[in-house]
Structures are given as C-alpha cells and as structure tokens.
C-alpha cells in the first residue's frame, strides 16, 4: 500500500514539509515566506490598480485612441494619479520580478544559467524602477 504511487510509475513527490536544505546549509532568513506573503498582498492591490488603469486607458471614452502627450500631462497634474501610477509601477515590477525569479528557479537547472538569468532579471527590474520613478517625478508638461 505504501508503494502504490511507485507502482503506477508516478515520479516521487517530496513530502511538502520536508526540510529542503542540504544538511549544514540552513536558511537564515524567512525570505521565501515574506515573498509568498508579498505576492498575495501586492496581488490584491494590483487587481484594483491595474484593472482600474486598463479600464480608464483602454476601455472607457474611446480607449487608446484618445491617448497622447496632453492626456498624460492632464493626468499627472493630479497627485492622486501620480501616486496611483507610482504605486502601480513598484508593486507590478516587484510582483513580476518575484514571479520570474520563481520561473527561473523552476526551469533553469544549471547554477550558471540560473545566476545569469537572475542577474539579467534584477538589472532590468532596477532599470524599470529607476527610470519609471524618475519619469513620474520629473515629468514636465511644458517640455519641447
């Protein structure tokens, strides 16, 4: 009875509560726990922020056809939408980066591949966060 799963040729599934680390190599922090909680908290906020953003930008009042520099200038004259976009930028980028970190951990099996893919991921995340934040804070409606 205990070997029923092996008899059916199913791959062995680790016990969910088994210790993952090799002996003598224990995690010192609860990083994975915090990242799991962050995905859920940011997820709930992003449902409101991103679906609201898509509704306004893509669906309402002719959607994307009415977008231009003037439209952006009008929205970012309001601290409410500046805050909305800043929060959306940070939460979405961190949520997505953490999601891709999981995907890389799942599929990139060689240590070197994992390292390089994650370096690329974190570099792009840093670029997006710095550039995006700078654009929101330094936006000039009278440029050009």
């Amino acid at each position: 009875m205990a070997t029923a799963l092996e008899d059916f040729g199913s791959p062995a599934i680790e016990s969910p509560r088994a210790r993952r680390q090799r002996p003598g190599q224990r995690s010192r922090t609860n990083f994975e726990l915090y990242s799991w909680i962050f995905m859920r908290l940011s997820g709930v906020l992003l449902v409101v922020l991103v679906l609201g953003h898509l509704l306004i930008m893509n669906v309402m009042d002719g959607g994307v056809q009415r977008l231009n520099f003037g439209f952006v200038a009008g929205r970012w004259s309001s601290p409410f939408w500046q805050t909305w976009d800043l929060l959306q930028l940070w939460l979405a980028e961190l949520h997505g980066t953490n999601g891709l970190r999981t995907v890389i951990n799942d599929y990139a099996e060689r240590d070197g591949t994992r390292l390089w893919l994650k370096m690329l991921l974190y570099t792009s995340a840093g670029l997006v966060l710095v550039l995006g934040t700078l654009v929101i804070f330094t936006f000039d409606p009278n440029i050009g």
């Binding site: 997505g96 891709l100 792009s124 997006v128 550039l131 440029i143």
Partner: peptide, 27 residues
C-alpha cells in the same frame, strides 16, 4: 499570462519614458 504581462510592462515603462524626450516622440 504572468510572464507575458511582465515583458509588456518593460516595454510599457520604456514607451512612457518618452514623455521626457518630447511630446512628438511620445505621440
């Protein structure tokens, strides 16, 4: 869907950053 949306987010922050270049470039 998560991976697709993440890649789009990169492109979208880049295109929005063009508001710092000029209105014409952005439009």
């Amino acid at each position: 869907t998560g991976v697709l949306v993440f890649f789009f987010l990169f492109a979208h922050v880049m295109d929005t950053a063009l508001v710092r270049v000029s209105p014409d470039t952005y439009d």
